[in-house]
Design a protein around this nucleic acid. Structure first.
Lengths: 231, 231
DNA sequence: AAGTGGTCTAGACCACGTC
DNA sequence: ACGTGGTCTAGACCACTTT
């Protein structure tokens, strides 16, 4: 007779069950790591691993000295996988293609300059239409800081999209993503082949390397687009 | 003379730096845990913790036997904090209030039934307007499975919103969130005090407990709303 | 002051997946 | 088959925060 070895996953599941069964209710203080380790007959590190995971998922609130409580307001953390557009399209079983509509080195408008700051060389302005099959899928408007990525000017962006090229060739350290909804402008509507004013899902992204902006991009998706995640 | 103790965070930062400095490029095989532990003079568990974190963030791909590589296509995982609406409003420095517009137990329309399945009792239909100050902030349309949460019928939802009540009183095990954009219908436009057709940010959420749907909710935000996250 | 979670160590065994 | 990451242990010390 040998007891099964406890894994942090099984502990995670058990604690999870106790919460969703209402055995431990929101706000309740649950036993400390040492106690749980004793109850389950495992090392404290294993308990820690399981509880840390649950806390990260928003089910528990943990504080030194105060102990671990079942989250009162489970701030649900939805994790979205932002993959490159080609993948996104191909995973839906369609053929991906893209075409560069504009590509020009020119001075940025004020609202872009405000974010990008002063640059030595003029930034590169790129607009790209991404297609699923023969239908428009997403319209991309991008500014690239050529100070940070000078060789983008020589890159062949017909085979590989700007996004993919930058991912593999530009260095970045952090980014910020914003999701919103907007009515399609005349220009966007025409490109995406929808009526002006159609509600469009927008993703804005700014990418930095250290203190410097690498690229600013706005993605406008076709109306059918939606972004899903499990929690 | 004593060297500073290595923490997993410092290791995380160092590996992160080597990637963003281009020392280790996308696709590169990086040293194994044992080697890194030797290089940094720490335990393998510490290296593991740092690399596991980086993998979870999408910067590394790890496979047994194959080793650890810098991610070729960094599937960036954006983590959104979905907090309850009251918090959201209050954190922007405004006064939160809500009012229930409709509250009725009735049979669900087909598209809701398709998700919720057959229920013994008729579900509860609730519509709520959430306000920031005196302005509309978000319009909520909700179906609650009364088989799963019978006492919701007796709950006083004037002081506390349905969302908050359910969070504290209903049990759930998993959920699915979908983000999209939609043009405001006449009804929605009127309630949110915008023009019909205005682009609206939509969050749809379905919550289960085990195999059963607990609640289905659709949140329609005012146009100025946007959702941000750092990566 | 004291209790709780946070982390590190050194060693061990295991599971998976590539070779 | 075997190398690599995945995980567990037992013990230790530390950091934070509340009492």
């Amino acid at each position: 007779m040998s007891a099964k070895r406890i894994t942090w996953q099984s502990l995670h599941a058990e604690v999870s069950r106790r919460i969703s069964d209402g055995l431990w209710k929101p706000g309740d203080l649950i036993p400390g790591e040492v106690d749980l380790a004793a109850e389950f007959g495992c090392a404290r590190a294993t308990v820690n691993r399981a509880l840390r995971q649950l806390a990260q998922e928003g089910f528990l609130d943990r504080r030194r000295k105060a102990g671990t409580r079942v989250a009162l307001h489970p701030v649900r953390k939805a994790t979205l996988d932002i993959s490159i557009t080609r993948r996104e399209v191909e995973q839906s079983g369609q053929v991906y293609s893209h075409k560069t509509l504009r590509r020009k080195q020119k001075s940025a408008p004020k609202h872009i300059q405000n974010i990008m700051g002063e640059t030595q060389a003029a930034p590169l302005y790129l607009t790209t239409l991404h297609q699923a099959g023969k239908k428009p899928f997403m319209y991309e408007t991008r500014w690239v800081n050529t100070d940070m990525v000078p060789n983008v000017l020589d890159a062949d962006l017909t085979q590989i999209s700007a996004n993919e090229w930058l991912v593999e060739n530009a260095l970045f350290s952090k980014g910020e993503i914003t999701f919103s909804a907007a009515n399609a402008s005349d220009a966007e509507a025409k490109i995406l082949n929808v009526a002006t004013g159609t509600a469009i899902f927008i993703i804005d992204r700014v990418t930095w390397n250290g203190p410097n902006v690498v690229t600013i991009v706005r993605l406008a998706y076709t109306p059918s687009f939606q972004m899903s995640t499990k929690i």
